[in-house]
Structure formats: C-alpha cells, structure tokens
Design a protein around this nucleic acid. Sequence first.
DNA 1: TTGAAAGCGCTAACAC
DNA 2: GTGTTAGCGCTTTCAA
Lengths: 335, 335
Amino acid sequence: MATIKDVAKLAGVALSTASYALSGDSKVSAKTREKVLEAARQLNYHKNGFAMDLKRSRTNTIALILTDLSGPFYSELIRSVQDVALSNGYDLVACSSMGGRESTAVKYLREKRVDGAIVLAQNISDEILLNAAGSGFPIIAMDRLTTGEGLISVVVDGELGGYKATRHLIDKGHRSIAYISGPTNSYDNSVRYQGYLRAMHEAGLEEKAKWRLTGNFVRDGGYKATKMMLMQGEIPSAVFYGNDEMAIGGIKAMKEDGFSVPDDISVIGFDDIQLAEYVQTPLTTIRQPMYDSGSLAGHLLFQLLNNEQVNDSYKLKVELIERQSVKTVAAEIKG
Amino acid sequence: MATIKDVAKLAGVALSTASYALSGDSKVSAKTREKVLEAARQLNYHKNGFAMDLKRSRTNTIALILTDLSGPFYSELIRSVQDVALSNGYDLVACSSMGGRESTAVKYLREKRVDGAIVLAQNISDEILLNAAGSGFPIIAMDRLTTGEGLISVVVDGELGGYKATRHLIDKGHRSIAYISGPTNSYDNSVRYQGYLRAMHEAGLEEKAKWRLTGNFVRDGGYKATKMMLMQGEIPSAVFYGNDEMAIGGIKAMKEDGFSVPDDISVIGFDDIQLAEYVQTPLTTIRQPMYDSGSLAGHLLFQLLNNEQVNDSYKLKVELIERQSVKTVAAEIKG
DNA sequence: TTGAAAGCGCTAACAC
DNA sequence: GTGTTAGCGCTTTCAA
C-alpha cells in the first residue's frame, strides 16, 4: 500500500508539499500539484482514512446503531438519518448491536470511531450509553427516556399511541378488549400498555387478566398468544396487539380457529410496518412518525456536534391509521 | 478525552505498562494491572479506535455496501453476512452508496477504513471497485460479474431464474407472455430477460415488442408499465415481471382495470421479497438464495483475508416458489 | 511556495 | 515485570 511518503518521493517533493497538493491547498503551484497527482495515480495511492482521522481527531462520520440491521421497520428511519447526515456533509454507517457488550455497536461507541451516534437498540444498557456519551461525543437515544451529559432522548409517544388505539376500539363500540403485550421489560411495551389502561379506565372498562398475554413483539409470539387466548373460551370483541408483527401472527391464529377479522374479532396493531397495508385484512394501526423522528434525531446530533444548546428530551405524536381490521359493533352489554 | 498517557501518569507507570495492562497482556503483575484499570476507570478512559487501527494497520471490520440501506429485500443478506463476520471475530458496518462517488461507501473503500468489503450497489462503477480492490483489500461483488485482483464475484443465476419463471408459465399452458423489465442497463435485468428469451425460443414462442415495457424495478414503475400494456388492447395471458415490486404494482393496475389475477392474467415475479407471500394474491416468484449467497460472500472474504486461494466467481442457483398468482390454462391457439 | 519536524494515541520491539 | 522508544500515515505549524 503506497503512502504519501512514496508519492512525495516519486514526485520529488517534500512530504508536506505532497499533502498540500493532495488536499488541494492553494499554496502549491499548479506544476507541483500536477507532478504529485501524477505520482499518486501511478502508485494507485489512496489516503489512509484513520491516519487522517487520528490527526484531525474527528471522523466526519456518525453511526446509526440498531439491534438488528435487517428489520424492515427501520427503513424510513435509516433514510431520514441518512438524509440529514448527507446534508451536513457527514457520512453515516449503520451497525448492529447484536452481541450486546461485545457488539460492533458498543465498540464503536466506546472507541469513538465516529463523531456521534443515534441509538435504537434496547439491548444496549443505559450505563454503556451514559458512559460513552459526553460533551465531545453526543448520542441520541430513540428507545428510552434516559438522558445525561451528551445523551439526548427522542421518543415517540407510545402512551398516547396505546391510548388512541384503545380509544378507537371503544369508540367503535367495543367493550371487551384484550391486550397482547411485547416483552414486559420493554419500555415501548410498557408505555403502550399504560395508554391502553388509561383508555380502558376512562371508559369504565376493566382489563381482564386472562386477556393480557405476552407475545414478545414477534409474529410467532402473537400467533401463540392468540391461540392461547382463544383456547380459554372467552373471546374478546377486539384485540390490541403491542405491534403489527404480533397482530399479523394473531390474525393468522384467528383464521385458523375459524374466526373472521374483523367480523368476529376486531384487531388493531402498532407501528404501521410496510406489511400492514398489504396483508389480506389491511391492518388498522398506530403509525409512528419514523421519518420525522429520525430526522429530528439527526438534526439534534448535529446541533450538539456544533455545541448548540438543545433540550434534553423530545416526544413525538403518533397517528391512527384506519384500515379494515376494525369493525363497528353495537355497544355490547358489558360482560 | 483522556488518553493512555493520562492513565499511565495517574497510575504512576510507564506508557507501555499501561498499554499492556489495558489489553490484558500477561506480563504485567496483578497489582499493577489493577492500579492501571482503576486509573482508567477514574478517568473514564476509552481506547481510541483509529489510533489502534493505525498502529495495527488493520481494523478487524468489514463493510457491507448497499445502494440503499433501507431496502427490506436485504434483510437476509445482512443477517448472513453478519453471522459470518461475527463468527470470524470481525465487526460489520453497513454503509450506503447513495451519492455515488461522493458516498460514504466509496470513501470507505478508497480510504481503507475497513479490511474488506462486500458490495451490492449497482451505482458504484466497476472502475472504483477494481481500483480499490487488491491483494491487501479484498472485495466481493454481488451484483456483477466483474473480477480482478482482489475482486471476486458472487452472483445468483438470474438467467436461469428468468428461464425457470418463463418456463413455468409455458408449462402451465401460457403462450402469450409479456416481460416487464427493470432498468435496461441493469445486469440483473438483462440476464433475467435473457432467460425469458431462451425459454420463449425453446418453446417456439415469439416475444412481442409491445409486451416488453420497462418498469425500473420499482412498484410504481410496474404499475405504470402495466397500465400502458393494458391500454394497448391486446392482453397477454401471463406477465413475467423482472421483480416482485413491479409485480405488486402491476397486479394493482390489473385489478383497477377489472382484470383478475390469476383468473384473467397470470403473474410471476422475481426475488421473493417478504411481501410476496402476504399480498392479496400471494405471488408465484423466483427465490434468490439471499442467505446462502451472503454467507458465501462472507466466507470468501475471510478466505481472501487469510490469503487463501479461491475461485474468481461463483453463481448460485435459484428456486421457483409456487403460490397463487399463476393459473393453468388450456393451451391457447397461438395468436 | 516549499521543506523540516512535531505529534495525533497507540502498540510492540527492545533494553533494563 | 517494567520502562524507553520508534514508528503507523497523516496534517499543520514554523522557518527558510
């Protein structure tokens, strides 16, 4: 691998001159520059990125850290962050936090391989984030409320989402409403559930313990939880799934057991993933403003990078998307 | 930001001792190590990643370069590459090639910020790839046949896929088969089209120019191309779309115009994206072995990194996935 | 304009 | 075991 030294030697100039020429500094004469460039071409020379970063002590790169790079759910988020990074002249790399403390993500955070990061990865502890963040290294967390020096939080109002979803069901006449939950230790799940409870209480409805099952936010979990619920005999008129993936699994289970959606049971999800619109019974759900929140996170990151003042935490609104999985029913006699 | 120097000073040891202690070298005494570790903790010290990379002259990281990080189509690919990287003790970062020569991807390639890369990004030219690749820097290209020093190609047999798709339609009795193409300058599109032609000719069928429209591999393109085709009056009994996205758009157009799929027109796609299984008429399509090809690409990359010999290029087989968008018809009289 | 030289933070000989 | 020291490849003063 040719270094700038080789280039300088071949071109017959000093190291620094070569450096100047290569970075287009105006003090080198056109003739010298051409000589240097030609030498570089001949040697197939390319700058060594991290030597430069080391010297400059910044990388001009930010990281987007996700639990699982492959989730289709993140598309819009990635796009929005990318847009912001690009327009600020920064590069964006995405890395996965799979592997927890040993993951690439944590390494990038700890070793400051980037100038800042946006994190949406529950499996990274608050402690690691707080530890890595600091005045010189801003982090925007999109999956928790934790804040600290250099650690800002941007979340979607999941409580409101849970409330809106449940409220929608109630407004449509439903009185017996089940909640299929995500992992009980998840922040997202717990706020959605809080919203559900608020709407239920407000309407004077009671949550039935047997209608609160856990599906872990995955499709198969929704399927299994639903099967179990159906087996118990007492069928709710509507089910609020903690996310769309579980709702899709749940609908499959219902159909298998001979229940039609929405005729026999209404279903509402959360997230508005791409699939939601395309499944056989298009899913009524709560849309998270992924593009907006990614965009906000990006902007905040750059403000911090420029030492501007920002608030500690931001909460974005959600929106109900009505499709075809919820039916209006005549208000039932409360069972 | 504390450096190792600060740590050494605070611990009252030499720089090198601190370095050894921090990296767990066995030559430092337990007592010294503890002292150093304590100092590091106190200063909230973290290694500087690129200083280390610079010294070691390797990064222990590989890059996966994609045109658009957000494509759901890549899920499995990302997962497979990640699995291989992890099991080799390497980190993986994903970067986007949006922005062409100015993109993060190209920067990473040129500046050797990683030890090697897997590329699936048509918008990066062969020239850039050839230029960046070399004995010290292996690249696996998954979207082209180009090979060179340090540049290996892993592709899916798109010609075979095109053939299988078309052949399937013919076997089901179809004689008038349209092809809705992707960008005409795309490698993927051209091989799929070759396969289509081979099957058509083999069956003594002729391609009709009016049935070959271009949809650019995007959903809306498929929609528009289909509308246009339908407008021309002569309706084929089956349509082979260059990818599933276009097929989904196409089916929408057909339905809008009163054609039922598969009763009036049969449809076959290509890729087997996640959606294919979930759309209202589940799509018959050609599955690309994304996990396998990513896995292969990953393994090859590490073989090259270890200076092992590998072949120049690899071609993987594809598989027909039968769902419900193709109907058997009584062989028509050739029109 | 060009060149010599310092040093970014770290690792790894080598010497003690 | 521990300390001294020479770079990794680059940018950027400072002097010529």
